[in-house]
Design a protein around this nucleic acid. Structure first.
Length: 693
DNA sequence: ACAAGCAGTTTTTTT
DNA sequence: AACTGCTTGT
């Protein structure tokens, strides 16, 4: 492990020469009228000179827009687009920003580099992998791949997992990820988050070491490695750091409050030559503590970067005053105080509504009916969103929307690349790409009839011993139970490997082999899964290389229901369903927050830990501030749990102390469909009163 | 000895 | 829906 001190020393090593600042274009020769199109605070941000800058931007203050103008300004004043690095949270927001910036300057911003930290680091690592003793065709493990590797390591190690309850593979994976993202010891992570496994500290530490060794040996990198290995590369080879940092004349980071320690060190490294780093964020919207994000990064920025400028964006252009009142009230409940009060010129507006529904079904009917009515009133579906805490909170609503023929896209929850059948298909391609990828081998071997964990492990040992990437089946004591199907598998792998065809035809070739397997293994619902595979073929056409397809699917996971987007491409733009986490940075005219009961928001997992509860509060704050004009918060009063039957719920504790002149309590009243007026105002559907139970 | 099938439990949020 | 632990079958 490298040390923080070493990195710091590294940065100070590069000698600095002071150049006189190149003359910037006079303002009147710029093509964009920055002063007219931005407010004073935004203008400052967009046009500020060199040096470190922290922008504290409240929700809805035009942060994205300002960053776009910043990029445009830099390009216009002579910075080459490829010397600008724009790090954003999702590739979705990165693309949106670059497209909008390109629109401002007729395409000149297209060559700005950027994307997520992980994607950006990947491009560096692909180039310099050999310096870290990795092959440059290394495989990226997603969270469940990583868990599978941990499982393999555990079963081959001599650790006794019997007796008392030993953590499962997925739990181990999150423990290891915390260790690395927070930079603390295994023992500390266990103590803080998993006290029940404290007795296994030694075993878990051992596994952690073995897991790291295994990845190195087999050319595997998990998500955390992409970041940490990049830092390691920088500290191992200062010349590489210097070369990369030299090409980063301006580093811009969005959502800085959600970066972790490693990411902040990467930013520091990238800015180590030119020192031009602008980070934008809002500590009140920090919602990724669970994966190591630390809002201290944003708070501590001015101390970390001497001579930095702090700018603020406080004018909210998005929401009505009524919605901001609720948002401000939520923030006032936080233990850690925020020095921000958002203000808007959009006075008044309907009060946000709190709607207790009798149960799930009523909640879904309420939301979908109101959506239809608002659409009648001229609000497009694409301007409305339903937000929720957990991916599965919308299942019932999804059925109802389907019934009412309301098109929707869902963000968050299950990703296409996480579905078992997609992982199967990708595993064949991964093995062809990197024959040392034992996780993928393990997966595809176990799809053979008569091969389970033990036999798969045995076959993998033989394959590894061969050190031969040509997929020839050598003489081994194979059992007759599976030898024929194993032979068929190798024939397929060899023919795809040697075909040198496009990723699309490679996927098609794999599918020809895989479809019978699919039907046997998933005989219950293979038809549904077959559709996803069709969708996968559609996705492959934009890739020129197999490795690009594989990397992209891991780093930029396609949401499962994006299928629906394709289907309705020419029709009405769909309604958005999203987890609150995935809705970060987005805005909608109408927002529904569903399942807003205690135990969901805040999650029952966070109860008992003040810091976690605070994060849940910020999460609700983020959800509320997505809304521009109308906000409805609902929850089912009655829930079913499989074993203890029905039980009554409480609304989220964060909403309990909110006075009725900020959040209006509504009730649902059932009415004959014929009686429905054709153009009711949203408030007429609900009337103030006691909850209807 | 190992694979396959069944039953019962458990599920946050994301790169 | 997927994972674990248990039982049955080869």
């Amino acid at each position: 492990m490298w040390r923080l001190g070493l990195i710091k020393k590294l940065f100070s090593m590069s000698r600095k020469f002071i150049l006189t600042k190149e003359e910037t274009l006079p303002e009147n020769r710029l093509t964009i009228a920055y002063r007219d199109e931005l407010n004073e605070q935004q203008f400052q941000v967009a046009t500020i000179g060199n040096g470190p800058v922290l922008v504290v931007a409240g929700a809805g203050t035009g942060k994205t827009r300002t960053l776009i103008y910043r990029v445009a300004y830099l390009v216009e004043t002579g910075v080459a687009p490829e010397h600008i690095v724009l790090l954003t949270f999702t590739r979705r927001s990165s693309n949106e920003m670059l497209n909008r910036a390109a629109g401002l300057l007729d395409g000149r911003c297209k060559r700005v580099r950027g994307g997520t930290f992980h994607a950006f680091c990947l491009t560096i690592l692909k180039q310099y992998a050999s310096k870290l003793d990795y092959p440059n065709n290394f495989t990226i493990l997603d969270a469940s791949d990583a868990a599978d590797v941990i499982d393999v390591v555990r079963s081959t190690s001599s650790i006794n997992t019997k007796g008392k309850r030993f953590p499962r593979k997925g739990t181990l994976q999150s423990i290891f990820s915390s260790v690395r993202n927070k930079g603390v010891a295994v023992g500390q992570v266990l103590e803080a988050g998993y006290p029940q496994f404290g007795a296994f500290t030694q075993e878990i530490e051992l596994l952690f070491e073995e897991y790291s060794r295994y990845k190195q040996k087999h050319g595997l990198m998990d998500y955390d490695d992409l970041l940490i290995m990049t830092l390691k590369l920088f500290s191992k080879d200062p010349a590489v750091l210097f070369e990369i940092a030299s090409s980063c004349r301006h580093v811009l980071v969005d959502e800085y409050q959600d970066t972790n320690r490693t990411q902040s060190l990467i930013v520091k490294a990238l800015a180590s030559v030119h020192g031009n780093v602008m980070v934008v964020g809002d500590d009140a919207q920090s919602i990724y503590r669970f994966r190591g994000a630390d809002f201290k990064n944003i708070i501590g920025f001015p101390t970390e970067y001497a001579g930095s400028t702090v700018l603020k964006l406080e004018h909210n252009y998005r929401s009505t005053q009524s919605i901001l009142d609720l948002a401000n009230h939520l923030l006032s409940q936080a233990k850690r105080k925020f020095d921000k009060q958002l203000f808007t010129l959009k006075e008044g507006g309907d009060l946000p509504g709190l709607v207790p529904a009798p149960d799930d079904r009523f909640e879904s009917r309420f939301v979908s009916q109101l959506i239809l009515q608002l659409r009648e009133q001229g609000i497009a579906l694409r301007e409305m969103a339903v937000l929720f805490r957990n991916g599965h909170n919308s299942f019932d609503l999804e059925i109802e929307l389907g019934r009412k023929n309301i098109p929707f896209v869902k963000y968050g929850g299950l990703k296409l690349a996480e579905a078992a059948h997609i992982k199967d298909v990708l595993a064949y391609l991964k093995v062809i790409e990197n024959p040392r990828d034992t996780v993928a081998w393990n997966r595809i071997l176990q799809l053979l009839e008569g091969v389970g964990p033990k036999t798969a492990g045995q076959i993998i040992e033989w394959i590894e011993a061969d050190q031969d990437d040509s997929f020839e089946l050598k003489e081994r004591p194979f059992s007759t139970a599976y030898i024929e199907s194993l032979r068929a598998l190798f024939v397929m792998l060899r023919s795809v490997k040697t075909s040198e065809s496009t990723p699309t035809s490679q996927v098609e070739a794999v599918l020809a082999y895989y479809l019978p397997v699919l039907k046997r293994v998933y005989y219950e619902d293979f038809q549904k899964r077959e559709q996803d595979l069709e969708h996968l073929i559609g996705l492959t056409v934009s890739f020129g290389k197999r490795s690009e397809l594989l990397d992209s699917l891991v780093l930029d996971p396609i949401e499962l229901t994006v299928i629906d987007v394709e289907a309705v491409k020419d029709d009405e733009p769909p309604l958005t369903l999203s987890t609150i986490h995935s809705a970060k940075g987005l805005e909608f005219k109408v927002v529904f927050i569903i399942h807003a009961m205690d135990g969901i928001i805040p999650s029952s997992y966070s109860v008992g830990d003040d810091e976690s509860i605070e994060e849940e509060l910020r999460l609700l704050y983020v959800a509320v501030t997505r809304a521009a004009d109308h906000l409805y918060i609902s929850y089912p009063s009655l829930q079913y749990r499989r074993y203890d039957g029905q039980y009554f719920t409480q609304p989220s504790r964060f909403l309990e102390s909110v006075p009725e002149d900020i959040l209006e309590l509504c009730s649902l009243v059932e009415q004959d469909p014929v009686e429905l007026p054709s153009h009711p105002a949203p408030n007429q559907l609900t009337s103030s009163g006691t909850p209807n139970q």
